[in-house]
């Protein structure tokens, strides 16, 4: 089932066509990798999907209904957004940061109740940050902070997670950890309604290994969408990224080694 989709979305900012007639769909149960060179419009597309930016043309639909039909709070309950760089501006305690995820579920006079605290606790366990609960978020390493903000997202209990380069600047161990968490969220068969994840990635191998589908964006257009084998071809990598790559396809293990610039 189509969870979130854009139909022929275009955006022009200061005379530059950032997104040009983009149609993408996120179906329930899948994790999608959004890839493309710098300036391709990945973050803009993510912000349109997250309802942070209105498109000039075209429509965004959630459960086949236009986004305008949703109150901001209802959309916030369904759809969570992980900002690039996982910013945190005050030295809050980790458990208080995770508790911010409950904001859409609480009215302004309400404090987190036992039920919410349970959800916060489970979110911290899930993202493996329970041991960090008393630490200040500004004293954490990049990998720890990303996991804390993922726990914040899990505490919102969203159907859909939209993440902007969640593994940029993380070491391989934490990259794998974060990707595993995102994939586990998308593939959670016990979840009802079913979950989904769309994440912007620069690492082609992580995209190939963890994502059910890959969407390749260039110059504000969707070049290609499909499985890693369909998208990460030598032709596409040359045309879009301007590189030649060694593609290893070994009994289901698919990987890409960027080798040389071609332009």
């Amino acid at each position: 089932m189509n969870l979130l989709a854009t139909n022929n979305v275009s955006i022009t900012i200061d005379g530059n066509r950032i997104l040009d007639d983009v149609s993408v769909t996120i179906r329930s149960g899948e994790i999608i990798g959004l890839i493309g060179p710098n300036g391709a419009g990945k973050t803009t597309l993510l912000r349109v999907l997250a309802n942070l930016l209105a498109a000039d043309n075209g429509a965004v639909t959630l459960d086949e209904k236009p986004l305008i039909n949703y109150a901001p709070l209802d959309f916030a309950k369904c759809c969570a957004y992980l900002a690039q760089g996982a910013p945190a501006h005050w030295p809050l305690r980790v458990d208080n940061v995770v508790a911010l995820g409950r904001l859409p579920h609480l009215d302004w006079w309400q404090h987190p109740r036992a039920h919410d605290k349970e959800i916060i606790e489970r979110a911290m366990q899930l993202a493996d940050v329970a041991d960090l609960r008393a630490r200040l978020v500004t004293t954490l390493s990049g990998g720890e902070r990303t996991r804390v903000l993922l726990a914040r997202i899990f505490a919102s209990q969203p159907q859909l997670i939209l993440a902007d380069e969640p593994v940029a600047a993380l070491d391989p161990y934490h990259q794998l950890h974060v990707m595993e968490l995102l994939r586990a969220h998308a593939h959670d068969t016990a979840a009802h309604p079913a979950h989904a994840v769309l994440t912007v990635l620069h690492d082609l191998n992580l995209a190939a290994r963890f994502c059910d589908r890959i969407i390749l964006l260039a110059h504000g257009r969707v070049v290609c969408a499909g499985s890693a084998r369909e998208v990460l071809t030598e032709d596409n990598l040359r045309d879009v990224y301007g590189i030649s790559a060694r593609i290893v396809d070994d009994n289901g293990d698919f990987s890409v080694i960027p080798w040389q610039r071609t332009r």
Binding site: R47, N51, A76, K77
Partner: peptide, 11 residues
């Protein structure tokens, strides 16, 4: 605290 985009995404 988590930035303007995140605040907006929280409703």
């Amino acid at each position: 605290t988590l930035g303007e985009d995140t605040a907006q995404s929280l409703g």
